[in-house]
Structures are given as structure tokens and as C-alpha cells.
Amino acid sequence: MRIVFDEIYEKYHQDLYQFIFYMVKDRQITADLVQDVYMKVLQSYDSFKGDSSIKTWLFSIARHITIDYFRSQTRKRKRIKDFFNWTEKGEFIPDKGPLPEEIAVQNEMIQQVYRYLDHCTPDQKSVLILRFIQLFSIQETAEILGFSISKVKTTQHRGLKTLRTYLLQHEQEGGDVV
């Protein structure tokens, strides 16, 4: 088990951490989810048959664990929403937390890109992070997400459009757009 852990850690740990961090944007939650990913990987490594690369397998597990986390959050939000009879918009929680240090030192445009990533759906967000922050290929992204290549392209296009719309609104209105 230690050998497998060492190998995955050396090759992919920082990428794995970064992917989950940009998805959930919270260091503590990221740390917990990263541990969950390692647990799943170590528990099922023996049955990994190499039908995909270790990299895409690892990230597909990370993605499922992250999506599970989002779903558990959505279920809780739904309960509150039902209680107060919120509109659908109530399901969406924009990121209003303090910026992590790495982002806080960047220019305002980058900070806005970081914030408005949350206006994308989890699928769009996954594609944008994998493609343009992690610099994975379309093929790798498709394997990780279980999408066809054309779906990756469509999702990527829509995600970029969503981001652009909000950044444009931000520029025009001169403040945060929710």
C-alpha cells in the first residue's frame, strides 16, 4: 500500500490537490476530500486493471468524490430551500469567502475569474479546471469525466461563455455580479 501511495503522491499529489481545491475552494474540505480519494484508490488499486491510465483513473475518482460532496451540499440546501420556498436561484451559492493567499496577490481580473468560476455548473467547472488550470488534454479530460470528446468541447464552450458573461457584467456594472 505504501508503495502505491508513494508513487501516486510523487507523480500526482499536487495536481490532485489543486484540482479539488479549485472545485471546492476550501483548504480544509480539499484536504479531507484528498484523503478520501487516496483511501478509495488504495482500497481498489488491486482491482485496477489498467483500462485507463492511473492518472485518468485517479482524477475520475477525485471528480466523483468532489461531485458527491457537492451533491450532499445541494441536498442540504434543498431542504432549506423547500422550507423557505426559495426560488431555484437559492441553489446557487456564490463564493464570498476570503480569497486564498495565492489568489489574493493576483490582479483583480484573475481574482474575478476565480470568483466567477462558481457560476459554472460542476461539469463546466471540472472541464475548465482540467483543461486550462491543470492543462490536461481533451482526451484525458473526456476519460476523467466519462464524457465524449464532443461533450467536453460543448461543456468547455458553455463554461467559457458563462465566465465571459459574468466578467463582462462585472466590468459594466463595476462590482460583483451574483
Binding site: 508513494d6 484536504a31 495565492e102 484573475i110
Partner: peptide
């Protein structure tokens, strides 16, 4: 063109590092 510019912005997002040692992480797991 707009899409390309948007991609360039995303690519500028910084690397985020995990500040935990390998040993500590392994112990926790």
C-alpha cells in the same frame, strides 16, 4: 477570439500547493 482570451485568463490562475508533508498525509490516511 473572446474564447481564446478567456482561456488565457484561466491559464493565469496560480498553482495551489498542499502544505502537508508526505509522511503526515500518509499517517492521516
Amino acid at each position: 477570439e473572446e474564447e481564446r482570451k478567456m482561456i488565457e485568463k484561466l491559464e493565469q490562475l496560480p498553482t495551489i500547493k498542499h502544505d502537508i508533508s508526505k509522511e503526515e498525509l500518509y499517517e492521516r490516511i
